[in-house]
Computed example of a mutant assay.
Amino acid sequence: MLDKLQTESRNRRSMKLDQMSRYDILKLMNEEDATVPKAIERELDQIEAATTLVIDSLSSGGRLIYAGAGTSGRLGVLDAVECTPTFDMPAERVQGLIAGGEGAFLKAVEGAEDQKSIGAEDCQRLNVNQHDTVVALAASGRTPYAIGVLEEANRLGAHTVAISCNKDAEMSTYASVAIEVETGPEVLTGSTRLKAGTAQKLVLNMISTVSMIGIGKVYENLMVDVQPTNAKLVERSKRIVVEATGASIEDAATALQKADGHVKTAIVMLLLQCEADEAKEKLQETGGFIRKAVN
């Protein structure tokens, strides 16, 4: 029942929220938000287990698929779409499902989250299989859509992960890995776009970033698979090559031109003083890991 969930309980510190000064409300919200990282810290082992599953999927040609309703669904979609420009990950390899379809990202679709069958149908539509990892999100841990996704993903043989913000969440029992970040009562009762939403966003940041590091999308602390799709990213690509190699900005630009804008290739060219074809070959041989290619 909802009234037994911590995320739906009343926060004793904010009982007079409508009488507090603007500054005191902001201070209280800030103090409550500061508790989120500690709650996440208690779940790091489970988050690591989730990234292991995702790396396994992405390394074997599978996909990372997020699924959720409302705020949880939007956060999953947001993390998924950011993986393409940040890590040059094809959009079909990291996807986000939201109850009610794409239109629900901008406007609530009433009732969509209440049906397990819609979650199952979305899994079927994506042809989820044993190579994929499906990560379902629900602050309450009991959203029927998210449970439907997990049930069907399990039936289809996929890895499954549940992310919720309550302990002993119902959906945890449907997942191979259960991440339960206990964020407690919200300042505004039941508004899980606040601490619970922040917690889910931070966990997704961890899962996608660590997973992309695990498949060779990062060299040192540089996002070397960034797509130079606009003027800002073209300049960032040059700076990344400079930082990774110690080359001048002019030499970095020349290498990028010869590498057809591919940052990794340009870096290997400069580090090994070789031509683009050889650099590409070495990257291919090492699965895209720059460190392995240059060693």
Rank of each mutant, 00 (worst) to 15 (best):
E110N: 06
A162R: 06
E113F: 11
T198Q: 01
V187D: 00
D114L: 11
G190Y: 04
H131L: 15
I213Q: 10
V218T: 14
E180T: 06
G148V: 13
E182G: 02
R125F: 11
L150M: 03
D122T: 06
S164Y: 00
E152Y: 08
N166C: 11
E170D: 11
A146T: 11
N205T: 07
A199Q: 05
S211P: 09
N154Q: 14
E220D: 15
A178E: 06
L222H: 10
E182L: 08
A196S: 15
Q200S: 01
N129D: 15
L150Q: 07
I163D: 00
V210E: 11
T192K: 00
Y174W: 12
R125V: 09
K195R: 07
N129L: 12
E151W: 03
L156D: 12
G119N: 11
A139F: 03
E186G: 02
G190K: 02
I207K: 02
T189F: 01
F105S: 02
K167F: 09
S211N: 02
L106Q: 13
A196H: 03
E110R: 07
S164K: 03
A139I: 09
K195H: 05
V109S: 14
T173W: 00
R193W: 03
L204K: 00
T192R: 00
F105K: 14
C165W: 04
Q200T: 03
S117R: 14
L222W: 08
P144K: 07
H131P: 03
Y174R: 13
G184D: 01
I179G: 05
V218I: 15
S140R: 04
S117M: 14
V149D: 10
G141E: 08
E180I: 10
E170K: 12
R125E: 13
E180P: 13
Y145L: 09
T183P: 05
L202K: 09
M212Y: 12
R142S: 15
V149E: 02
P185H: 06
S140M: 08
N166A: 06
P144W: 06
F105T: 13
D132C: 07
L194K: 01
V135K: 02
V109P: 00
C123W: 04
T189V: 12
K195F: 09
E220W: 01
T183G: 01
A138I: 01
T198F: 03
